[in-house]
């Protein structure tokens, strides 16, 4: 078990190296860099720009840049954000936390609704509740995140029940800890709801079809034949087996949640990693781009890793080696 954990953590290293290398390469393929726009400014001399470029090793080929970046990462320094003019590390971790918070809350919301609904739809197959769930799933799968985000923004603006954009009030620092908490919740609700709604449909359909499969399994008939009550048969025998494939999906859903978060964050102005990556990308703030991509990858890999651990815990047939 411990060996498995260590092995998986070690596997992350070449993956993250590869992802960072590829991101550097792709960034270098695009023309110009962060300082190119400064050249247009007559008040800044080309010498100054050249000096700045040299300072950030932007005058070197991409693999040399990568080498410098990698060397500083080994010392726990993720480079410098040229656009924000602060070390990337402080920026990244604050944003990473926001994205994690948004994704995590959205995931809990989605699963808390989708799993019971999926179970209900499977148990009452072909009833009106099953059809209603199918309709919800159909709408949920068809409506793009972009539209849902815009609708949420319109809703927030029209009702004024929710703030439009941001993660906390401007006067956040003046609030008591309790007020600070509620302030964050208030800002979080709407983006999290949008994100949750987009992944809810898939999980619900999956839960339903898994449970329908296990309800047909022979061990379920065998359990009924033992004289067990129907509720107990579903709860213990069918559901326990139906949950296993969902744990695998958990890993994937974290991935889709992160990419969904990119869109939702950008439209609803949630200061998360997705939005930071996008801004950094357009500003050609190259170190920040690489840092964000690496962080997002790490988050994704961790999600899959946790899913594997959960699966091993849930299914005795799986032995982690």
């Amino acid at each position: 078990m411990l060996k498995f954990v260590l092995k998986r953590l070690l596997h992350m290293i070449p993956l993250l190296l590869g992802v960072s290398l590829l991101t550097f390469l792709l960034m270098s393929l695009a023309p110009g860099d962060y300082f190119t726009t400064l050249l247009q400014n007559p008040q800044i001399s080309p010498d100054t720009v050249a000096r700045l470029k040299a300072q950030f090793h932007l005058d070197q080929p991409w693999y040399v840049q990568y080498f410098y970046w990698f060397k500083s990462v080994l010392h726990g320094d993720f480079g410098y954000s040229m656009a924000y003019k602060i070390p990337a590390t402080s920026l990244i971790f604050a944003r990473l936390w926001n994205t994690f918070l948004l994704s995590f809350v959205a995931m809990i919301m989605a699963w808390a609704v989708a799993v019971p609904l999926g179970i209900w739809a499977a148990v009452k197959k072909d009833s009106w509740i099953d059809r209603a769930c199918s309709l919800i799933a159909f709408v949920g799968l068809s409506v793009p995140d972009v539209l849902l985000s815009l609708l949420a923004l319109w809703f927030a603006a029209a009702t004024r029940w929710f703030p439009v954009g941001g993660a906390q009030s401007p006067y956040y620092d003046l609030l008591t800890p309790m007020q600070q908490f509620w302030d964050r919740v208030h800002y979080l609700i709407l983006p999290a709801l949008v994100l949750a709604a987009s992944s809810l449909a898939g999980i619900m359909r999956q839960m339903r079809s898994n449970l329908l499969d296990t309800l047909r399994a022979e061990y379920v008939t065998a359990a009924r034949a033992r004289g067990l009550g129907e509720g107990w048969v579903i709860w213990k025998h069918a559901l326990r087996n139906a949950i296993n494939p969902l744990l695998t999906i958990f890993g994937y859903s974290l991935a889709s949640l992160l990419s969904g978060a990119f869109i939702v964050e950008n439209i609803m102005a949630w200061p998360g990693l997705g939005r930071l990556t996008m801004e950094a990308f357009f500003a050609k703030d190259s170190y920040l781009v690489v840092d964000s991509v690496v962080m997002a990858t790490a988050l994704l890999v961790m999600g899959n890793f946790i899913a594997d651990l959960l699966l091993a815990w849930s299914d005795p047939r799986i032995r982690l080696k």
């Binding site: 022979e218 061990y219 065998a222 213990k236 326990r240 296993n244 849930s314 299914d315 047939r317």
Partner: peptide, 8 residues
């Protein structure tokens, strides 16, 4: 093999 619940 199919009549026994695999996870208990």
């Amino acid at each position: 093999g199919a009549s026994l619940n695999p996870v208990f």
